[in-house]
Nucleic acid binder design. Structure first.
Lengths: 187, 187
DNA sequence: CCTGAATGGAACATCGGTGTTCCAATCCAG
DNA sequence: CTGGATTGGAACACCGATGTTCCATTCAGG
């Protein structure tokens, strides 16, 4: 029950609130602080003790989201292999971020890091490498590829929630769709 | 009583409110009734005179959205040509719907018609025809193709707002991406 | 046992959106 | 012009979310 009574309780309570906020806001961006507090299993008073205003909580979410995105991006090793294979790996890593995807997609102002304006240099380098090595359609701008990946991940997550498809099946559909979309066209 | 034969001004005011609501809510789904009334250049009192509750306005928007979607769908002639060519035409027609796309995409409960649960039989027939005639990847379920089209149209519209790209250029990117995504894979 | 930290509940004020009422101004047709 | 229709503004009550204050409870550690 009360698992947060040890010395590091403050840090753990704070993390529990941030995690719950990502979870709840990912499903419903208009959720109230009361909903978030309930999901975190803390009183609304406690939530306000850690984050005086809603904006403070959103800022903490942004930091957390940026960290998770950076970690996933690093694991995708964007600099290795062909451009298309790197995009493929990036989709796989991002897919595991789950609810965070919905949140970042619907509230772009949350994540000002590597996802916001598509200004991540590693991402751009990956796509441009794909343009050169013939695995990514050169007609598609870097920003467009970024937009494509995000929208497909979001659509896939929504598809997962609506239909009863398995995570594995949805990931397969996402990868198949994105790979086909960025591929160099035959004609 | 006889709503059918009201004076011309009533019908025009009502339509102006619905149009403004689609416009405003498309940009910001959380917009207030005051914002909508201002955009329609009407007093908030007048808006309430036509739509007693917010839900009434949303219902009217749903009807209007359904009508516009049905018209666009009819113009795409889903039953003609290959499955992929029909999808291509459908994207072109839907793209012209503009802000309505964002609204229907972010508020799926608005349009319960041919867009909501992907239950439109004509759409399903088109995709299944594509599966058979070899122009749409048979690995992609009907629902997934629907989701793909909507997410790409939405992403394209957002791309249009963010970057300074022309409508024509964005439509070209959407069509190129969707065509590639649904195409039967080589390997 | 006692102290301080952490928590949660209750109560309160505040604010913005909503829905309603009332009234004055305007417009349009007979 | 006149009377009904249409409109817009002002004021009000209501509600939910927010942010704050206060207090009681619980727990860890000296």
């Amino acid at each position: 029950m009360t698992d947060a009574q040890v010395s590091g309780s403050r840090a753990r309570t704070r993390q529990a609130i941030v995690d719950a906020a990502i979870e709840v806001l990912g499903r419903n961006p208009a959720a109230s602080l009361g909903d978030i507090a309930a999901a975190a299993e803390v009183g609304r008073t406690t939530l306000h003790r850690y984050f005086a205003e809603r904006a403070d909580l959103l800022a903490a979410i942004g930091t957390e989201a940026g960290a998770r995105l950076d970690r996933a991006t690093a694991q995708a090793r964007l600099a290795e292999g062909t451009g298309a294979s790197a995009v493929h790996r990036l989709c796989q890593e991002y897919f595991d971020l789950g609810n965070l995807l919905s949140l970042v997609f619907t509230e772009p102002e949350i994540g000002t890091g590597s996802t916001g304006g598509g200004c991540d240099p590693d991402f751009a380098a990956m796509v441009e490498r794909g343009h050169r090595d013939g695995t990514i359609d050169p007609e598609l701008p870097v920003d467009w590829v970024q937009s494509l990946i995000w929208s497909q991940l979001y659509a896939g997550w929504a598809y997962l929630a609506e239909t009863g498809a398995s995570r594995h099946e949805v990931l397969r559909l996402i990868l198949r769709t994105v790979d086909g979309a960025i591929a160099v066209k035959a004609g």
